[in-house]
């Protein structure tokens, strides 16, 4: 692939999660595990450097909101810039994975599902 990946895959997954609704950190972890059938079970603390990086770059913005339990939670919201980045990177990823699949399919002895 000639195009350089601008954001990491974890960032792409986070942006993707936020494309539907605003979420707080723990909610993202749970949702990521559920949607990936527990394939993506990252060390949960490492989510926050990713979120703070995205916030610093303007891809997401954060706000505080009180949970029904009374606890304050920090929610993340996908910005317009984040939405555009998600679209671009998702297309790149699709193109990349298609290319990898094509190579694998053409390899002798490999049977793709």
């Amino acid at each position: 692939m000639k195009k350089k990946q601008n954001i990491e895959h974890t960032q792409l997954l986070v942006l993707s999660l936020l494309s539907n609704e605003d979420m707080y950190g723990y909610q993202m972890i749970v949702e990521l595990a559920r949607r990936s059938d527990h394939t993506f079970e990252m060390k949960e603390g490492t989510l926050y450097p990713v979120l703070h990086g995205l916030e610093k770059d303007g891809y997401v913005e954060a706000y505080q909101q009180e949970a029904p339990t009374g606890r304050m939670r920090k929610y993340y919201h996908l910005t317009r810039k984040g939405g555009a980045a998600l679209k671009t990177e998702a297309e790149t990823w699709q193109s990349y994975s298609s290319a990898v699949n094509a190579v694998l399919r053409s390899s002798a002895g490999l049977t793709m599902a």
Binding site: K43, G45, T46, Y48, K56
Partner: peptide, 20 residues
């Protein structure tokens, strides 16, 4: 499940460059 606090700390620090 939270992972190594030193790693989290190190990675968080990277998101706050010295110039900021």
């Amino acid at each position: 499940r939270m992972g190594d606090p030193a790693e989290v700390s190190r990675e968080l620090n990277k998101q706050y460059p010295l110039r900021w």
